[in-house]
Design a protein around this nucleic acid. Structure first.
Length: 487
RNA sequence: GGCGCGUUCGUCUAGUGGCCCAGGACGCCGCCCUUUCAAGGCGGAGAUCAGGGGUUCGAAUCCCCUACGCGCUACCA
């Protein structure tokens, strides 16, 4: 049997990282088994459609390198892959169910349903459809169906139990008497998720359904639907939820939830993929960074855990830094250029000086965690003066105002002795190292003051390279400015 | 309220009856390297395996109960 999995998002906004994690698992499962992965758009709720969502969904997948064999854009043998274009299939299924008496037309108004629920709540009874329309005769149902607005409800079997053999959790048993006659076809002619999912998964020959744990309680609906329609159910794997640092479902309050926000904020797709893949799944007891090829070769549902995972941004940052350091020099340079273009202040001339970028890129590679930090780190290279800083930082770094003055004066005198032509990285280094004896201080003791003077802060790119890049005039000017701050 | 799922270092996880007085990674702390900051190397702290009962010669691993957390309970997915 060929494994066929799908990612079935609703176009109701930008895809959430939890959703994308599901897509990654489904994709990896298909690939690891030589099967197919497809994308299907579940746009059955006309009220919640958000224009542009489908594009953003596919963009999210592409960004991570996820490829699908069939989908709304590429088509495939089971096209169309958009549910709103498959309405006749759901209607046919609903008719089949009605004919088999496994579904019935329900003429209850929203008002009556509300009243019913209020009553149930007041009586402290579990909410659920009371079955009023379930007893309407076929003839009457047929007649009223032509004239009145109605929905089609699935008639759940109310005796016995429905058991799911979940690939992640093992057997989960549900009492049928607690099941509700859910709506399968809405009054606007669109199916609900429940009906559409079964019809499409059957038609598209899906073998494994991977979805979030929040779907577990609706599994009995799906199992009974399969049975009533006369099909063998797919295999199900309910994946653990991804939680925010507060232990609740990841939300805007505690961090970004949209996958593409991470791209905006300077994360690499490789880091994101590796990070998300390891949320709920692991290769073995040693591997903590997973290359895509390895994921696609080794993924298996057996190694998916059943407990929820907290989205740990620090771990993502670490992975991002790891992948940044792995980038080829030319690729990295292009990345630096891109993020400088978008991140540097408007006062910096565009296009941003390529020579400066080329010189700074190697220095940046080991000190960047997020691409969005790049502009801030190199900004000092683009102004005449250093970025603004509090003079107190100078004093603090020197360990006293008098010390700061002494250090700056000595540096000024020595460096001023270098000619324009002699202003090279190595010459600057030799000159500054020479200050050790003169000042009676170790290099590491006085050098932070120079960092502040040149870069506006005590940490940043290596000093000698920075000063060489700045050029004699600007570098010296910044020392003078620092010195002036202390008068 | 009902139903369901879950519970191993702060976090992600390894672990499926003896190899575990629990391994790895992030984070944290220290040392080394060093031009600050990083990166890198080395080392350390950190989990009575939620609690309580069983089963067994032996349990993180099997069973039961409790607690807590989370999810679901729509003509949303």
């Amino acid at each position: 049997m060929t494994v066929r999995t799908r990612y079935a998002p609703s176009p109701t906004g930008d895809p959430h990282v939890g959703n994308i994690r599901t897509a990654i698992f489904a994709w990896a499962l298909a690939r690891a088994n030589g099967g197919q992965f497809l994308v299907r758009v579940e746009d059955t709720d006309q009220n919640r459609l958000v224009p542009g969502s489908v594009g953003r969904i596919m963009e999210s997948l592409r960004w991570l390198g996820i490829e699908w064999d069939e989908g709304p854009d590429v088509g495939g043998p089971h096209a169309p892959y958009v549910q709103s274009e498959r309405l006749h299939l759901y209607r046919a299924a609903a008719d089949q169910l009605i004919a088999a008496r496994r579904a019935y037309r329900c003429f209850c108004t929203p008002e009556r349903l509300d009243a019913m629920r209020a009553e149930q709540a007041a009586q402290k009874q579990p909410p659920g459809y009371d079955g009023l329309c379930r007893g309407i005769t076929a003839a009457e149902s047929e007649a009223r169906g032509r004239a009145e607005k109605h929905v089609v409800r699935f008639a759940m079997r109310k005796e016995g139990q429905t058991a799911l053999n979940d690939l992640v959790r093992g057997e989960v048993v549900f009492e049928n008497r607690l099941q509700d006659d859910f709506v399968a076809l809405k009054s606007d002619g669109f199916p609900t998720y429940h009906l559409a999912l079964i019809v499409d998964d059957v038609d598209m020959r899906i073998t494994h359904v991977l979805r979030g744990e929040e779907w577990l309680p609706s599994a009995p609906k799906h199992l009974q639907l399969y049975e009533a329609l006369g099909h063998t159910p797919t295999l199900f794997a309910h994946l653990p939820l991804i939680l925010g640092p507060d232990g609740k479902k990841l939300s805007k309050r505690t961090g970004d939830t949209a996958l593409l926000d991470y791209r905006e904020n300077g994360y690499l797709p490789e880091a994101m993929l590796s990070f998300l893949a390891m949320l709920g799944w692991s290769l073995d007891d040693k591997t903590s960074i997973i290359p895509p090829e390895e994921l696609l070769r080794s993924f298996s549902i057996e190694r998916v855990v059943s407990n929820p995972a907290v989205f740990d941004i620090q771990r993502l940052d670490y992975l991002n830094g790891h992948y940044i350091r792995e980038m080829a020099p030319e690729t990295w340079r292009a990345t630096v250029a891109e993020w400088c273009e978008r991140g540097l202040p408007d006062t910096v001339a565009r296009p941003v000086n390529a020579e400066v970028i080329a010189a700074a890129a190697p220095l940046l590679q080991e000190r960047t965690a997020k691409l969005s930090d790049i502009a801030d780190t190199v900004a000092f290279l683009f102004g005449y003066e250093a970025p603004e800083y509090a003079p107190a930082v100078l004093v603090e770094r020197a360990g006293g105002e008098a010390e700061a003055v002494r250090i700056l004066d000595a540096a000024l005198v020595t460096l001023d002795g270098l000619s324009e032509d002699g202003w090279t990285r190595d010459a600057i280094e030799a000159a500054i190292r020479g200050l050790e004896g003169e000042l009676g201080l170790k290099l590491r003791k006085f050098i932070p003051v120079l960092y502040v003077a040149e870069q506006g802060k005590a940490q940043g790119l290596p000093l000698f390279d920075s000063m060489a890049l700045l050029g004699r005039q600007r570098a010296l000017q910044r020392l003078r400015t620092a010195r002036a701050h202390l008068d």
